[in-house]
């Protein structure tokens, strides 16, 4: 059974990566039509990226939103994960269920429901409304990551710190925080990536300044823009992979530092 499964697994990975593999191929192809055969190598499409002010504005806007969303989601995640892993309180299941709900809610629902409320309150849309939505959907991911970070923590470590004379807060700062730091970094990176890639909520809640995915969406209608989009996509995928690799590295280093067994990836 092992051999056919292995062949299947490799084919499946091919299926997973095939579309992404096309990105660099056509990003460097000297032709406006995305089709084989290739027509030669060019840096043109990347050069063009540098000359679109609207794109730069969108990138900056997205980065700003992603950084703020990642920080807020991780802060909320730390609070919720700490409460969930360390304390027993009535109604915990329901409360955590509500906070984790966006994980199992179609994003369009989150988007329209927020839109309705914002419009009813007469608030104008803008970067901060997108941040509100992104924090909402990124927090459950942050909690999932931080939960395992907090769970891996021997409870008697904090007690030992208290026993040795530290207060509750200083033992959190001296013992707990350093030990969950890899989880926090991991959570920041994941939340950042989610916000950076998110389209639907940004599409509904963005004001006059589009985020990068919203800008990209607008460009997708124009066939002559395709090669530029491929170039941009190449950069985005590289950036995502880089961020993920850093997150994974942080997680593994954290596991190694505390002497845990490596129990495998995210989520």
């Amino acid at each position: 059974m092992k051999r056919p499964l292995r062949v299947y697994a490799i084919l499946y990975l091919g299926f997973l990566y095939a579309p992404i593999a096309l990105l660099p191929v056509f990003a460097f192809n000297d032709g406006t039509v995305i089709a084989f055969p290739l027509r030669g190598f060019t840096w043109d499409w990347f050069r063009q990226l540098a000359e679109i002010p609207a794109l730069h504005a969108a990138v900056l806007n997205s980065l700003k939103i992603a950084v703020i969303s990642a920080i807020l989601a991780t802060c909320l995640g730390v609070l919720a994960a700490r409460a969930a892993t360390r304390f027993a309180f009535p109604g915990k299941k329901g409360i955590m269920g509500l906070i984790m709900l966006p994980l199992v809610l179609p994003e369009i629902i989150v988007a329209v429901s927020l839109l309705v409320v914002l419009l009813q309150l007469g608030l104008s849309l803008g970067a901060w409304t997108v941040i509100m939505g992104h924090v909402l959907i990124a927090t459950p991911f942050a909690i999932a990551i931080l939960n395992s970070a907090f769970q891996g923590l021997d409870r008697s470590l904090e007690e030992a710190a208290v026993d040795l004379g530290e207060t509750k807060w200083s033992s959190f700062r001296l013992v707990t925080l350093p030990l969950v730091m890899p989880g926090i970094i991991s959570s920041l990176l994941i939340a950042f990536t989610i916000s950076l890639d998110e389209f639907i909520i940004a599409f509904f809640l963005t004001g006059t300044e589009p985020t990068l995915p919203v800008y990209l969406w607008g460009q997708m209608r124009f066939p002559q823009r395709l090669p530029v989009i491929m170039a941009l996509g190449t950069i985005l995928v590289l950036a995502s992979v880089l961020l993920l690799a850093i997150a994974e590295y942080a997680r593994r280093r954290g596991a190694a530092r505390t002497g845990q067994k490596d129990a495998g990836g995210f989520l």
Partner: peptide, 9 residues
């Protein structure tokens, strides 16, 4: 990895 790359793309 593919999951974490831009959905739109």
């Amino acid at each position: 990895i593919p999951f974490w790359t831009s959905y739109l793309i």
